[in-house]
């Protein structure tokens, strides 16, 4: 039995009178990849932002390594090893690639000044390591393609020594080659065995290929949870169809 890295119990989140999450529970073990699927507006991104300390849940409890924690800020979550690639990527267009890769985690010399040289070198090495090609780490992020931008954001999270890595639709803007590189990168992290990954995905087949476990969400609730190897694209689509039928029946 593997050890549990993160558990979120009975999380609810209301924005005014919109209920984005109505009692979601989720857990991920050490070394495990959890894939989350679900429609737009299901509350997936909101759930991620609660785990990263960006939003405070309306109710519910989080546990990290079995210990109850109440996250007070993004920095707090980061200090516990939680790192996230947000759907909007959180990149600053007017800053060069290497500053984006070290955003709010800048390397400094002994005088407290930014160590531009070290950051450039390490950013370049990290991107090289993944196989992402950019003309220069000095280029502003604004000049990159969607896929490159996404790769930068993912590289930033992966190379931060995260223990729990959250990826919100990491393959969304990617071409086949870039997606391949990122899947490869995720699988290399998975192989290390000490890092847990939660990834929100759209493509069912890709999710089944990468994830160990699958969770499906619909309108703020969990509609399915199970091992990836025990299910199939057909079975997952069946669940979605059943949900729609039930929704339509309820609406009548």
């Amino acid at each position: 039995m593997s050890t549990e890295a993160l558990r979120a119990a009975d999380i609810t989140k209301n924005f005014g009178n919109i209920s984005a999450l109505s009692g979601i529970s989720l857990h991920v073990n050490k070394g495990e990849v959890l894939g989350i699927l679900g429609d737009n507006g299901a509350g997936k991104s909101t759930l991620m932002k609660i785990i990263t300390g960006y939003h405070k849940p309306s109710s519910g409890q989080m546990f990290i390594n079995g210990e109850a924690v109440t996250l007070t800020s993004v920095d707090h979550a980061r200090s516990l090893g939680i790192e996230c690639v947000y759907q909007d990527l959180a990149l600053v267009n007017t800053l060069p690639i290497y500053h984006n890769m070290f955003l709010n985690r800048e390397l400094r010399n002994r005088f407290g000044m930014l160590d531009h040289g070290a950051m450039r070198k390490r950013a370049a090495a990290a991107l090289d390591d993944i196989g992402v090609q950019v003309p220069s780490v000095d280029d502003e992020v604004a000049m990159l393609s969607g896929g490159q931008r996404q790769a930068i954001a993912i590289a930033r999270a992966v190379y931060s020594n995260a223990k729990i890595l959250l990826l919100d639709e990491p393959l969304a803007a990617m071409g086949a080659r870039e997606a391949g590189l990122i899947i490869d990168l995720i699988q290399r992290q998975q192989a290390r065995g000490d890092i847990s990954i939660i990834m929100i995905m759209h493509n069912y087949a890709q999710t089944l290929e990468i994830a160990d476990r699958i969770m499906m969400m619909q309108r703020g609730t969990v509609t399915f949870e199970g091992n990836a190897r025990d299910t199939s694209v057909e079975a997952l689509l069946d669940i979605v169809r059943r949900e729609y039928r039930a929704m339509r029946a309820a609406a009548q």
């Binding site: 996230c84 909007d88 600053v92 800053l95 955003l103 800048e106």
Partner: peptide, 19 residues
């Protein structure tokens, strides 16, 4: 200075990065 640029360049992103 860097965080000043980040906040002006992408307020949401800078906040998500914990700034």
């Amino acid at each position: 200075g860097l965080h000043t640029i980040a906040v002006g360049g992408n307020l949401t992103g800078a906040t998500e990065a914990g700034i």
